[in-house]
Amino acid sequence: MMSEAMRAHALLDAEQLRARVRTTIDRFLARQTEVLADVSDDCAPLVRYVADLMSGGKRLRPAFCYWAWRAAGAPDEPAVVTAATALEFLQAAALIHDDVMDGSDLRRGAPAVHRRFAALHRDRGWGSDADHFGVSSAVLAGDLCLAWSDELYTGSGLHPVALGRGRSVFNGMRTQLMGGQYLDLLDQASGGRRDPGAVERARRVMHYKSAKYTVEHPLLLGGRLAGAGDRLLARFSAFGLPLGEAFQLRDDVLGVFGDSGRTGKPAGDDLRENKRTVLVALAFEQATGVQEKVLKSHLGDSALDAAGVDEVREVLVETGALAGVERMIGELLDRSLAALDDVDLAEPGRSALVALADAATNRTS
């Protein structure tokens, strides 16, 4: 008998969606290589480093978009896969810029894009500052990905009427993502402290920086492209928003407690970067004076070692913050799935969306 995990994997790979997304990415980037070659062969790393970054990833955003399209009763067709793949370029832009802002060294188990450009500078023995070159080049690479996301969406081959229906979601998603990222920067700048409003602010950052553009907006985009009515779109939102929050909460737990071999980033990077997550905010709410001192001394410490990470982990467990986040994930997942209970969704779209919910919350990377 097929296990639930095997069934979920099979549903997520139905229609060979992951392979089709990867093929779409590869073909699109091959065309962009030719475009930039007209500028100079020296531009090749701009595409190569983006291609390497995009060779990995869960493909959750295009999956939510595609399966919302199918759940709304629309048939499989190449054009919607292309439109959904545009979300992977938006994700690449967000990751590249996020790593620059956080000063991250690794992404998906490899050097972050700005680190790769800095290494290129050093290897070639160029003058000036290698790190500045790396950051500046990564900003350009991220900007290209943002532009490419729009180019891929517009040129997907879907009917202009369908693209017009989805345009407001596509545009709003990109703007709100940047707003959420700015809120994240503001919270990092505020430093570690006990603050009664910290949990609510952390959830607001999570809402706009991750939850909406990871799940809700891709669902709404797929639904609108398929011509779904207001009632179904409302259910997609009710399904997507709590699921997106649960996804990010799981990401926050993995950022501190995860296996770096699976997550692709060193354990504790969120602590070094002073990420004001719900997990951290809950710990500050319940911390004793001694525990608060531990948190303040380690959050934002770029040289935080494994022993320091273990000290923070201990506080997160002892204050009940970890258990609290796990409860929130379970409650949010239940609320998300309940939104699909009495709505008419086409198969295999419904089953795929349920499998995606499980994959987004019960994961180790």
Rank of each mutant, 00 (worst) to 15 (best):
L158F: 07
V161I: 06
S190V: 05
G264E: 09
A238F: 02
E88T: 00
L46V: 04
F117R: 10
R194I: 12
A112G: 11
T361S: 08
H121P: 01
E245Q: 14
L95Y: 06
R313L: 02
I96N: 04
S168L: 12
G103F: 07
S104D: 14
V325S: 01
A118D: 01
V309R: 09
V135F: 04
L185I: 13
R363L: 10
L158G: 02
G320P: 13
G127V: 13
C145R: 06
G320L: 10
L271D: 00
G166R: 08
L241S: 11
G197L: 13
V343A: 13
V343C: 10
Q32M: 04
G172N: 10
T288M: 04
L185F: 06
H217M: 07
A94V: 11
S128Q: 09
P218M: 07
L152K: 12
A71C: 04
E311Q: 15
H217K: 08
R59P: 03
D230M: 09
S365F: 10
A93W: 11
A44F: 08
S156N: 08
V343D: 06
W126A: 02
N362W: 05
Y182T: 10
L254V: 13
K209N: 08
I96P: 09
A281N: 09
R115D: 04
Q176S: 10
L17W: 01
G255E: 09
P160I: 03
A338S: 11
R204D: 14
R350T: 12
Q291G: 00
S3G: 01
G223N: 04
R194F: 07
P45A: 02
Q286P: 01
L90K: 12
Y66D: 03
E216M: 12
I329H: 05
H217C: 11
A147V: 12
G244A: 07
D105K: 12
S128C: 06
F247T: 14
D252G: 08
H298Y: 06
L90V: 15
G172M: 05
H9M: 05
D230K: 14
L185E: 09
L233T: 12
A283G: 02
R335P: 00
K293T: 14
H9C: 01
Y213E: 12
D341C: 04
M54W: 02
H132C: 08
T361H: 06
E88P: 00
R165S: 12
D38R: 14
Y208M: 14
T277W: 01
R108I: 02
V215L: 09
D102W: 10
A68H: 04
L177P: 00
G103H: 07
E311N: 06
A162W: 03
P218Y: 08
M1N: 07
W126I: 00
Q32G: 00
L249V: 03
C65W: 01
F239N: 11
A355C: 04
F247V: 03
F247G: 10
Y153V: 04
